[in-house]
Design a protein around this nucleic acid. Structure first.
Length: 469
RNA sequence: GGCGCGAUAGCAAAGCGGUUAUGCACUGGAUUGCAAAUCCACGUAGGCCGGUUCGACUCCGGCUCGCGCCUCCA
């Protein structure tokens, strides 16, 4: 149950401002997010959408909403066919492989699985039915070549989401106009099969769906004609989401979506990270150097709507910041986190920050203030206070999908190369003896030996701990 | 060209019409065999020009610069 005093505001692309969120059904949120076209590995831009909407889902659930989160998989597409042909393999093999890879990346990033991941290939019936409805209602027409197009002139609100005027779009329209279209801005709902290409039977002959129609068909199928939130990456606003609205509202005659949410772009050297520019870094590539949690922290350290610059130094900085959180809980026992009592002072501020359009930077600021209080409490050995603050911090971390790792494991890292743990422990034991004998020269020599291997020793009250740099 | 978004201290990044954001980095101190971590101390930053106001980083207008979309892209 969502408490009565909860006021959640969300920026709606449709209105261009933050609005008080009002679900269609009390306590329930139905959300659809456009997912990946699976012909290659996910990059950091994809990670932003995955993590962003994961945090949104976690927070909505945290404040009591029953969330149905749907994120589709596009497994029919020109690029998929092209890549499969290049590889000389059936397209299903290609997509199966990259769906697995995507799930691996997601698990690494602690992204909770959506409730459903509908695939275009599994919804041909609904897709064809929606196209038929659009033709019946006069929003679409079948061309002689077997393609079916959406007639954008028939849909009055076309351009409302992306704030574009049809005339302006026409002025800038590309010249390679397909003659079969009534208006150059009309888009394909169904594409006639090309020679030797995978295809499905339809009333218009063998073919396959256009890109936009699958989302209209699958979202409606999973969530109903009208639902609460539709999200996606920044480059989907136009034409993809604009076309979705035209299709769904044309077919159902009802409002398609109440709140449209778009993530900000990830940039590299001031340019948008994108497949076409080729300036992308895949998630697994970055994982070779930084932990998934660092990537996740980097992505939530700026607001989901703002653009972020991806760079080595921003990841290094994310790591330093995350280290501070883990230092604060390092050495605490599991039971220190189990307390039922939380600090309302901090939880209220955290909730207020997150309720303001999911302001994660503000939420993190609250957590850092809590960390300071926790460090002071630990210094004073105020164990009750330590337990309350540690439990509070851990719960906030859970909402953001961070701080759930054992601190020692976090600092030791997961690399299997380098000096084995047992050898490190052996060195530490030798150093312990040297220190007991006040043999500082030997003690420092061992520290240097390990430092060469990237191992940093920390002498604490309870003994020496170590971490990999 | 059309439409939209942004410009905050060394770097990153938020809120807010008047009171320390926060993190990283830096400097001094406490602590430590030495370190690390931690704590204490230390920064009035808000592209430029006008306007509204008792008071503006925060509201309004103009300008400059940057970015995004207008084509497949998360």
């Amino acid at each position: 149950m969502v408490s009565d005093n909860t006021t959640l505001s969300i920026y709606n692309t449709l209105s261009g401002k933050k609005e008080r969120f009002q679900p269609i059904e009390p306590n329930k949120v139905r959300m659809y997010v456009c997912g990946m076209t699976v012909y290659d590995y996910c990059h950091i831009g994809h990670a932003r959408v995955m993590v962003g909407f994961d945090v949104i889902t976690r927070f909505l659930r945290h404040i009591g909403y029953d969330v149905t989160y749907i994120r589709n998989i596009t497994d029919v597409d020109d690029k998929i066919f092209a890549r499969a042909a290049e590889n000389g393999e059936p397209f299903e093999d290609l997509t199966a492989r990259f769906i697995d890879a995507m799930h691996e990346d997601e698990r690494a990033l602690s992204v909770l699985p959506p409730d459903q991941e509908p695939r275009a290939t599994a919804h041909m019936g609904q897709i064809i039915a929606m196209i038929e409805t659009l033709i019946e209602k006069g929003y679409a027409y079948a061309a002689e070549n077997g393609d079916v197009y959406y007639a954008i002139d028939k849909f009055e609100a076309y351009g409302r989401l992306s704030k574009k005027k049809v005339e302006d779009l026409q002025a800038g329209a590309r010249v390679d106009v397909e003659v079969q279209k009534q208006n150059p801005l009309d888009f394909a709902l169904w594409k006639a099969a090309k020679e030797g290409e995978a295809s499905w039977d339809s009333p218009w002959g063998k073919g396959r769906p256009g890109w936009h129609i699958e989302c209209s068909a699958m979202s409606t199928c999973c969530l109903g004609d009208t639902f609460d939130i539709h999200g996606g990456g920044p480059d989907l606003k136009f034409p993809h989401h604009e076309n979705e609205i035209a299709q769904s509202e044309g077919a159902t005659g009802k409002t398609y979506v109440n709140v449209w949410m778009h993530a900000g772009a990830v940039r590299v050297n001031k340019e948008k990270m994108s497949k076409s520019l080729g300036n992308f870094f895949t998630i697994r590539e970055v994982l070779e150097k930084y932990s998934a949690e660092v990537i996740r922290y980097f992505l939530i350290s700026s607001h989901y709507r703002s653009q972020v610059d991806y760079s080595e130094s921003s990841l290094a900085e994310a790591q330093s910041a995350l280290d501070r959180f883990y230092q604060a809980i390092r050495g605490l026992e599991p039971e220190d986190f189990e307390g039922k009592e939380l600090s309302s002072e901090y939880t209220e501020r955290f909730k207020a920050a997150m309720s303001d359009d999911f302001n994660t930077p503000e939420a993190l600021a609250v957590m850092f203030e809590l960390v300071k209080a926790l460090n002071i409490a630990r210094q004073k050995e105020a164990s009750d206070q330590v337990r309350i603050l540690a439990a509070t911090l851990r719960e906030m971390g859970d909402v953001l999908g961070i701080l759930q790792t054992d601190p020692e494991q976090y600092f030791r890292g997961t690399t299997t190369d380098g000096m084995p743990d047992a050898e490190i422990e052996a060195w530490i034991l030798r150093r312990k003896t040297a220190r007991e004998n006040k043999d500082w020269a030997e003690s420092d020599r061992i520290r240097d030996v390990l430092a060469e291997q990237g191992i940093v020793l920390d002498d604490g009250k309870g003994g020496t701990t170590w971490r990999r740099q």
